[in-house]
């Protein structure tokens, strides 16, 4: 994905001002050629690791290929037909959507609040900045190991706390109604630091003259927040929300490590189901078909989301 954007400054500047144009086309062509040379590594990597897997996955989804190498016959759209009638596909899709909502909303709001608190002059800004961002640097295996113990039903940190204030223990990862929220909680703790940083940077980019002018006009703190700060953060909020949605729909690692999809499948995300189908049950063809169904759904949502923005322009 890093391939798609070529740095602007390396593009051939065709509209170069007054400088005398090279007499023959040869110089230009050799410059073009060196341009391709520079792009080549990316192009090769993209072809090998993006284009080829995408095409080969599409082909696989039309076969009954298994992980064991057998059954490589073309079976048309049978896998797709199966996917559309497979209740597991829809259930896991729904659960993925639930997780996306349950994680994106707090991830954006908490990140924003944390950035506002730090920006509005808590002493020792560097300490807050570091602490809020530090958890983002942890590998997922470490995060889930910490939380697996904190969520432990008998001796876990959270249930001990609850017990101290007289609340009955919660089945954080074992209660079907709670488990997905617990996974979202872990995710928020783990990755909110990134959104916090984006917001903090944006906050620091708001010109102080705006605030000065508002203060002179008699605007109080809340007024400045709602009339200056939040409107000024609109663009970065758009970025944060989109990034967060993309990150949340492909949730897999935390779930795989914390619950493996349980209890009773209540935390199985669509990627977990694809993994289980392809790698545990060896049905690569069918797993590929589900991935393409998932891909199509994301594509449709993206297009629907793009349409109104086009009109605005």
């Amino acid at each position: 994905m890093t391939v798609s954007s070529i740095p602007r400054e390396t593009r051939p500047q065709t509209g170069a001002p007054a400088a005398p144009r090279p007499r023959a086309g040869s110089t230009l062509r050799s410059r073009d050629r060196s341009g391709y040379l520079f792009v080549a590594p990316f192009a090769v990597a993209a072809a090998l690791f993006l284009a080829w897997p995408t095409l080969s996955g599409l082909w696989t989804s039309l076969t009954n290929r298994s992980l064991t190498g057998s059954g490589n016959e073309f079976i048309g759209f049978a896998n797709y037909a199966e996917a559309f009638s497979d209740p597991q596909v829809w259930q896991t899709l729904w659960q993925t959507a639930m997780f996306t909502v349950a994680s994106t909303v707090p991830l954006v709001l908490v990140g924003l609040v944390m950035a506002l608190l730090v920006q509005t002059g808590l002493p020792g800004q560097w300490l807050w900045r570091t602490s809020f961002f530090a958890s983002y640097l942890l590998p997922v295996a470490v995060v889930t190991a910490i939380f697996a113990w904190a969520f432990q039903p008998d001796i876990g940190l959270f249930n001990t706390w609850l017990g101290n204030i007289g609340i009955a223990p919660v089945g954080w990862l074992t209660d079907e109604g709670v488990a997905m929220l617990s996974v979202a909680l872990v995710t928020v703790w783990w990755t909110v630091g990134f959104n916090f940083l984006l917001y903090l940077a944006a906050l620091q980019g708001i010109p102080s003259t705006l605030y000065e002018a508002a203060t002179i006009d008699g605007a109080g703190g809340w007024r400045r927040l709602f009339s200056i700060t939040l409107p000024q953060l609109r663009n970065v909020t758009g970025v944060v929300v989109v990034l967060q949605l993309l990150a949340s729909v492909k949730v897999f690692d935390q779930i795989y490590l914390l619950t493996a999809g349980g209890p009773d499948g209540s935390t199985r995300s669509i990627l977990e189901y694809i993994y289980d189908t392809g790698f545990t049950n060896y049905r690569l063809g069918y797993a590929s078909a589900i991935s393409y169904v998932f891909f199509a759904i994301i594509l449709i949502f993206t297009l629907v989301r793009l349409l109104p923005t086009r009109k605005e322009r």
Binding site: F49, L50, A247, V251, F252, D253, I274, Y275, S291, F295
Partner: peptide
């Protein structure tokens, strides 16, 4: 698409790059 995984499921690291 499963092959294109970022740093973490909710880690928007690819964007950074």
């Amino acid at each position: 698409m499963t092959a294109r995984r970022g740093r973490g499921p909710t880690g928007p690291a690819p964007h950074e790059a």
